[in-house]
C-alpha cells in the first residue's frame, strides 16, 4: 500500500467535518473520491498533503507516518497535489512553472552561486530538457515559452499535473481535474492520467464528473457526511 489513511477525524470549532475516515491506496492505481459539496473531500486532501493537521488519526505514506510532517516535507516524500482552481505561477512562462516545481534546485541557495556555479547551470540545463519532455507529455509542447496565465483553463489544469510530474510525485492528489473544462480536454486529462497509472504513479482524484472518473478508476470512494463508503474494483 502506498497510502494508508487510518481513522482520520477533523473538527473545526466543534463542527465535525471528517469522521473516522479510513482507506488504503495501492500503488499504480487511480482512485476517485466522490462526495457532495461540503462533505470534506478537500479537507481530506489538505490533511494528506500536510496543509491541515487531523484532530485524530494518522496518515501513512509508504509506511511513514505523516503526522508531524509539514507540507514541504510531505512534498519531499513524494506526495503532490493540485488545487480546485489551478495554482500556477501566472506571470511566469510554462517552462518556468515546470522548473519551479522541481525539487532541490542548487540555484535555490545563494552560497551555491559562489561555491559551485557550474553545478547550478548544468542542473538548470538538465531540468530545462526535462521540462520540455514533460511539456510534450502533457500536450503543451508548443506553449513552453507562453505565459501560464494566458493558457486556457483546461491547459492550466494540464500544466498543474505536469508540475507534479516535474516534482517527481509518486502519489498525485488531484482536486477536480475535470471541472470547468470542455469534453475534449476531459479526454486529454483522463488519457494523461491513464498513462501515468501505466508508469506506476498512484492517483487519488476528487471529482464531480462521476462518469469520467469512474471510467478510469480502479476504486471509487464515497464520502458522505464526513464518513467514507468504499466501492471496489471498477477497472481492474
Amino acid at each position: 500500500m502506498i497510502l494508508k489513511v487510518e481513522h482520520i477525524s477533523k473538527s473545526f470549532n466543534g463542527l465535525s467535518v471528517l469522521k473516522d475516515v479510513s482507506f488504503e491506496l495501492s500503488e499504480g492505481t487511480i482512485t476517485s473520491l466522490f462526495g457532495e459539496n461540503g462533505s470534506g473531500k478537500t479537507t481530506l486532501f489538505h490533511i494528506i498533503a500536510g496543509f491541515l493537521k487531523p484532530t485524530s488519526g494518522n496518515v501513512y505514506f509508504q509506511d511513514e507516518n505523516l503526522h508531524h510532517k509539514s507540507a514541504d516535507e510531505i512534498d519531499e516524500l513524494g506526495i503532490g497535489r493540485t488545487w480546485q482552481t489551478p495554482r500556477i505561477f501566472k506571470n511566469l512562462s510554462v517552462q518556468d512553472n515546470l522548473l519551479l516545481a522541481t525539487k532541490d534546485h542548487p540555484g535555490e541557495r545563494v552560497l551555491n552561486y559562489l561555491l559551485k556555479p557550474g553545478i547550478i547551470w548544468r542542473e538548470e540545463t538538465n531540468r530545462k530538457e526535462r521540462a520540455e519532455k514533460v511539456c510534450d507529455e502533457i500536450g503543451l509542447a508548443r506553449k513552453l515559452q507562453k505565459t501560464a496565465g494566458a493558457l486556457s483553463y483546461g491547459q492550466q489544469k494540464l500544466l498543474s499535473i505536469g508540475m507534479l510530474l516535474m516534482n517527481d510525485a509518486e502519489l498525485l492528489l488531484l482536486d477536480e481535474p475535470f471541472a470547468g473544462v470542455n469534453a475534449k480536454m476531459v479526454d486529454a486529462i483522463s488519457e494523461l492520467l491513464l498513462q501515468l497509472k501505466e508508469r506506476g504513479k498512484t492517483v487519488l482524484l476528487v471529482e464531480h464528473n462521476r462518469s469520467k472518473a469512474t471510467e478510469i478508476s480502479y476504486k471509487v470512494l464515497h464520502l458522505v457526511k464526513g464518513r467514507i463508503q468504499e466501492q471496489e474494483g471498477i477497472t481492474p
Partner: peptide, 30 residues
C-alpha cells in the same frame, strides 16, 4: 539566475510554492 524565478514564484503564489516544497520565507528574506 534561477533565483530570480524563485522570487517571482513567491510573488505569484506562496501556497503553490509551499506545495512544491519551497520555503517562501527564505526567498523573502533574501
Amino acid at each position: 539566475t534561477p533565483l530570480s524565478r524563485f522570487f517571482q514564484g513567491v510573488r505569484d503564489d506562496q501556497l503553490a510554492m509551499m506545495s512544491f516544497g519551497k520555503k517562501p520565507a527564505y526567498f523573502k528574506t533574501l
